[in-house]
Computed example of a mutant assay.
Amino acid sequence: MISVIIPVYNAEKYIIACLNSIKMQNVDLEVICVDDGSTDNSGKVIKEYCTSNHFVKYLYQQNAGAPAARNNGLEHAAGEYVIFFDADDLLFPNALKNMLHSMTINSADVVMGNYDEIDEQGHFLRKMNQRDCVVGLDKNWQFVLCAPLPGNKLFKKTFLNSHGIKFEPLKIGQDLNLYLKILAIAKIVLLDQEVMGYRIVQGSISRQYSLKILDICNSIDNVKEYYATLGKTNDYKKYISIAELIAYRSQLAKIRFFTSEDQKNKIIEVLGRRIRKSYLPSKVLLKTYLKERIKCSIILCMTFFNLY
């Protein structure tokens, strides 16, 4: 059985479409909706859905964030396999069946699929083929530039539990944190098929702008510590540090949405220092590294001259 774990916070607008897309999956499954203290009608909508769809379970918790909600759902999961899905996303037909088949025949710990980006109305925006992100490295390092979102990945639950893998209590970078950790220890297989629609919602946490974006530093530091405990610090420097640089550049790019000069200066101080100290990666990743450093320099220069 597959457990689909969905953290829910004020998602009444999208949750039914999400649940219906899961209902159409031709596999044995359960859905665990963890209401993270919603202030809208999300809880009521899900409870009504549960009355005629008994594969859906409803859990409530005081607002503690998506990582805590996902971990809560994992503790209650009865399935042998789990997928962490967002309440505003859509599973494509046969996605779970195909991912489960790939996991079984490859004896994998994690199966990762392609996905489409969709807008708030569910209209197609662009394909996100993960095969295009694969680089010429061996083992899981070939996947270091792939998207870290969890909704396109099926996990073997025993793998997560045996390694103590959970979502860290972070405001920013919780998905990246988990993904970079599994790169070090999991057997990952890429399924070259679209499995989900990832909805771009303007009000989502990843698109809100405050000094909380600096929590990306805590996310990265936690990953570094994890690699150190595994004795893989050199692997981190050679392969994973490029993801660190991309994460800093991604957060730095949000500086154009800030109006406070004090906040801008703080972001430049913290992220700028970390970018300058970034490691030189493996030769295969060097071109990407140089491109990212150039992008960071352009953002900083344009911010300095009030052009960004």
Rank of each mutant, 00 (worst) to 15 (best):
M1K: 06
M1I: 08
V4C: 06
I5P: 07
I6R: 11
V8R: 01
V8P: 02
E12P: 11
I16H: 03
A17W: 09
L19M: 05
N20A: 06
S21R: 08
I22V: 03
M24N: 04
N26V: 05
V27K: 01
D28M: 10
V31R: 02
V31M: 04
C33F: 06
G37W: 14
S38T: 12
T39C: 11
D40F: 12
N41C: 09
N41A: 13
S42G: 05
G43Y: 11
V45H: 00
I46Y: 07
S52W: 00
N53A: 09
H54I: 13
H54F: 07
F55Q: 10
V56M: 09
K57D: 15
L59C: 06
Y60T: 10
Y60A: 03
A69W: 09
R70V: 12
A78H: 07
I83D: 01
D86W: 02
D89I: 04
L91D: 03
L91W: 03
F92A: 08
F92P: 00
N94A: 02
L96K: 04
M99H: 00
H101S: 13
T104G: 00
T104Q: 13
I105Q: 10
I105P: 00
N106R: 14
N106P: 06
S107A: 12
A108E: 11
V110N: 10
V111R: 09
Y115L: 08
I118Y: 07
D119C: 13
Q121F: 07
F124H: 15
L125Q: 14
K127V: 13
N129A: 09
D138M: 03
N140K: 10
F143Y: 15
C146D: 15
L149D: 14
L149F: 14
L149K: 11
N152V: 01
N152D: 08
N152R: 02
K153M: 13
K156A: 09
T158N: 12
T158V: 06
H163K: 10
K166D: 01
F167M: 12
K171Q: 09
K171M: 05
K171D: 10
G173A: 00
G173T: 02
D175A: 07
N177P: 08
L180D: 14
L183F: 08
I185M: 08
I188M: 12
L191C: 11
L191V: 11
D192I: 06
V201D: 10
Q202V: 04
S204L: 00
S204I: 02
I205K: 01
S206K: 05
Q208K: 12
Y209C: 01
S210E: 06
K212Y: 11
K212M: 06
I213M: 07
D215S: 07
I216P: 05
C217N: 07
S219E: 07
K224A: 09
Y227K: 11
T233S: 15
D235A: 15
Y236T: 01
K237T: 05
L245C: 08
A247Y: 05
R249G: 12
R249L: 12
S250L: 10
Q251R: 15
L252A: 02
K254R: 11
S260D: 07
E261W: 04
I267R: 03
I267C: 02
E269P: 00
R273M: 06
L280R: 08
L280W: 04
P281S: 04
K283M: 09
L285P: 07
T288L: 01
Y289D: 01
L290A: 11
K295P: 00
I298L: 13
L300P: 02
